[in-house]
Nucleic acid binder design. Structure first.
Lengths: 308, 308
DNA sequence: ATTTTGCATATAGATAATCTATATCGCTGA
DNA sequence: TCAGCGATATAGATTATCTATATGCAAAAT
C-alpha cells in the first residue's frame, strides 16, 4: 500500500503555515520552533517531492501554483484535526478567542460581554484588538468581528449590522448646528482609519459631496470618539457604535439623519472551519444583543430590568 | 499561543487508523510499522492527554465515546491532507483503486474496463475483489462497487442499477420449464452468499412464496454462475449480471419475468472524501456504460460499431 | 554609493521522537 | 489444559527534528 504521506506530517504542517502566513518567521513562531527548523522542513520536503513548493522572494515565500491550489484542502485538513483534538480533550469550550477593531471592542462589546459570560459560566473570553484583520486560520483565534465589505478571501461572514452612520458631537457643539450647512463653521474630525464616507452622508443630506470640511485629523479610531465626546469636533460614526454615548447624553446626533453604506460589521470565521459550540453560542447571543442595543445601553438597561 | 496538537501528529494518525480498523495489527500494516510502535503511540498519547482513548478488549481496541465522537472529524482531516498531497504531486491521477464483489468484477466490469482505460490513457486500474466490503477510508481504496441496500455507515453511495432479477439457466434446461411451477422438477441453485430472494420472485410470479426448491448449495457467487452455465440448475441472478451470458446464448431467461428488489449495485465512496478527477470520470463512464450494457455485450458490440 | 534591515539558507551537532526486537500477559475457544 | 490471538512493556537502535551559528541576497534607508 503506497504511503499517502510522501513527506512527514510535521513538514506538511510547517508548509501549510508558511504558505498561509507568507514567511518563515511567523510560521516558526506559530510552531514554537526556530526559523532554521522551518526552513529545513520546507527544503527537505521539496527534495523528497522533487519540485519546489515556494517561490523565493525578498519579502518571503510565495506558494507556487501547485501548492496554492491544494492549500485550502490541506488547511482544512489541519483545521479538522485541530478541532477534533480540541473537542477530544474538552478544552475547546473553555476559552473563546475573539479578535476585533478597537472601536467595536471599546464602544460596544466591552459594555456587554459580561452578559454573555454570565450566560456561559466557565467560558473565558479573550480579546485581541488590532487595527488590521488577523489571519483567521490561526489556531488561537476562534472568530473575528470586523468592519468592512465582508468580502475577505478565505473568510466566512455573517452580517451583524452597523451600516447606518451619522454625524455625532457633544451637546454644546450641537447648539451651533441648526442645519447641515453649518458644519462649515465648526471643526469636523477626520478619522484617517475610518471607512465611513462624509461624501456619502453629504449626498444623503442634500449637500454638495465635494465639500471639504476643516478639522483635526486623527489616526486612532478610539481617540476620534474621545475627541468628539470632548467637544473637539463633529465625528462621523456608525450608529451602532455611537448609540451608548447618545443614550447617556455624552453625544448627540445634531441632524437625526443617517446614511447607509456598503460597509458594516461582520462576524468572521475561517472558511471551512467547523463551528464549535462556544462560537455558535456567541453568534446567537450577538443576534439578540445587537438589535436590543440599538437604543444604547441606558435605554437598554431600563428595558432589561426585570418586571416582576 | 497554545499548541493545537497536544500529541504528535504521527500519534494522532496512528490513533485514527486503530480506531477505524479496530485493532493494532491492521493499523500497523497500514502504517508500515510494527504492532509495538503503534501500541506505544497509543499509550504515550493517553499518558499525555491524561485519559484513555480506547477500551481494551480481547478482540482489539474499541474507541471510547470521547474518541468515537471526534473520529469522523479526525478521519476527515487526514483524508483532506492525503487528498491534498496526492493532488500536489499529481500521482492521485495515475492509479484508480477499485474494490468490488466477484460477480460484478467477473460478469460485468472485466468485459468492459478496457473501454474506460482506452478513454483514460495513463490511468492504471487496480481491482481488489473481496466478498465483504472493505473499509473505504483506507488510502489505497478510491471507491467500491457493492451490492446491497446502500445504507452502509460512513459511506456515500449512488445507485448504479441491478435491482431487477430473474431465474436463468442453460438453454437445454429451459426446455423442461414450460412454466414457473415446473421449477419443482429441476435442480435450483442456492447461492448462500446471495442477497437475491427466491420468495420475492415467487411472489411476483404468482407462486406460493413458501415453496422450497431442491438443488445444489454453493457459497461462491462466481461458481454459482458457472454452475448455471454448465446446466447444473436454475440460478436467480441480477439481470445486469446475467445480460452478457444471455446475449451470447450461454444462458436464457426461461420465464421472461423479473422481480425488483430493495438491493442493487452502488458506487460507494468514503463519506466526506473529496472526489478526485479519476473517480469522477469513472462515475461518469459508469453512468453511460451501465444503461448501454442492459442488452448484454453481444448486443452492445453491434450497437457500439462505428457507422461510417 | 554605502549601510542597514529583513528574510532565507546551510551546516554541525544535540535532542527527542520513533522504531525494532524480544519477552510477557490476559482472554477466548477448542 | 493448551493454543491462538491480541495487547503491552522495555531496552536499545535509528531517524526525525531541533538549536546554534554563520552566511548570502535583495530591498530599503541614509
Amino acid at each position: 500500500m503506497q504511503n499517502p504521506f510522501p513527506i512527514p506530517l510535521n513538514a506538511v504542517r510547517a508548509i501549510e503555515i508558511v504558505a498561509r502566513r507568507g514567511a518563515l518567521a511567523p510560521a516558526a513562531e506559530e510552531l514554537g520552533v526556530t526559523v532554521g527548523a522551518v526552513s529545513q522542513h520546507v527544503r527537505r520536503a521539496e527534495e523528497r517531492l522533487g519540485f519546489e513548493l515556494f517561490e523565493r522572494t525578498a519579502h518571503g515565500l510565495v506558494p507556487r501554483p501547485a501548492l496554492a491550489q491544494v492549500l485550502p484542502q490541506i488547511s482544512a485538513g489541519f483545521a479538522a484535526l485541530q478541532d477534533g483534538l480540541a473537542n477530544l480533550s474538552g478544552r475547546d469550550e473553555l476559552v473563546l478567542n475573539l479578535t476585533m477593531g478597537s472601536v467595536f471592542a471599546s464602544r460596544w462589546l466591552i459594555w456587554r460581554i459580561n452578559k454573555f459570560t454570565a450566560l456561559n459560566p466557565g467560558l473565558e473570553v479573550r480579546l485581541t484588538v488590532t487595527a488590521a484583520m488577523l489571519d483567521l486560520g490561526r489556531p488561537d483565534i476562534d472568530c473575528a468581528i470586523r468592519y468592512g465589505l465582508g468580502d475577505w478571501p478565505g473568510v466566512a461572514t455573517s452580517a451583524i449590522g452597523g451600516r447606518d452612520f451619522s454625524p455625532v458631537c457633544a451637546p454644546r457643539l450641537a447648539e451651533r448646528l441648526p442645519d447641515p450647512a453649518a458644519l462649515a463653521q465648526v471643526p469636523v474630525i477626520h478619522d484617517q482609519t475610518s471607512m465611513l464616507s462624509w461624501p456619502l452622508w453629504q449626498k444623503a443630506a442634500g449637500l454638495d459631496a465635494d465639500i471639504q470640511w476643516r478639522g483635526p485629523r486623527l489616526s486612532d479610531a478610539s481617540l476620534a470618539f474621545d475627541a468628539a465626546i470632548a467637544g473637539q469636533g463633529v465625528l462621523l460614526a456608525a450608529d451602532m457604535m455611537s448609540a451608548d454615548a447618545i443614550s447617556d447624553g455624552r453625544l448627540v446626533r445634531p441632524f437625526k439623519m443617517s446614511a447607509k453604506g456598503q460597509c458594516g460589521y461582520w462576524l468572521a470565521t475561517a472558511k471551512g472551519r467547523r463551528e464549535p459550540g462556544k462560537v455558535k453560542r456567541f453568534r446567537q447571543w450577538l443576534a439578540s444583543e445587537v438589535p436590543a442595543s440599538a437604543g444604547g445601553y441606558m435605554q437598554q438597561m431600563s428595558s432589561d430590568l426585570p418586571i416582576d
